[in-house]
Amino acid sequence: MPQVPGLLKGLGVTFKTMLKPAVTVQYPHVKEAPPTRARGVIALKEENCTVCMLCARECPDWCIYIEGYKDKAPPRREGGKPRTVQKLDRFDIDYSLCMYCGICVEVCPFDALYWSPEFEYSEVKIADLLHDKTKLGEWMGTVPEPPALERGAEAKKGAKK
């Protein structure tokens, strides 16, 4: 059997690929949805935050800035003492420094931080990448439900809702 020259065989591969439809999309016009677990941007649920500073301490490049104050909240029961709660003054994440490792979301003991797959927040000025608590709160609307787990997985106790 005569051997097909390698050059022609290779051309056959390119020809076959040429007949297939393109796999790329024209980005600004057509958008592909990232998966639900994608680490796009961190969203903040302000009412859950107790200013415990765990996220700021565990962040590997220290890009979270937190300031808080003590406030009086109405008592839980009728006639009880007013409670002391911690409120946020400032919660900033500097996305020009963030490494998107997700440690802050993981260590948060009160479920105040969530990942959102949103990624279109580039800015002209680097200083605008510092998102304050109102902007981080706006991302909460884009946080998806966590996906169901694969067959054979054990449900995590106290999984985030």
């Binding site: 998966p35 677990r37 993981e106 787990l149």
Partner: peptide, 28 residues
């Protein structure tokens, strides 16, 4: 990789004593 770990290039998925999360449904 991104569907399971959340990161395309930097999964940060391995933990001491196991993994961060299980696989999402339909991944296999």
């Amino acid at each position: 990789m991104e569907a399971a770990t959340g990161g395309r290039f930097h999964p940060n998925f391995d933990r001491i004593g196991g993994l961060k999360e299980d696989l999402p449904r339909g991944w296999v």
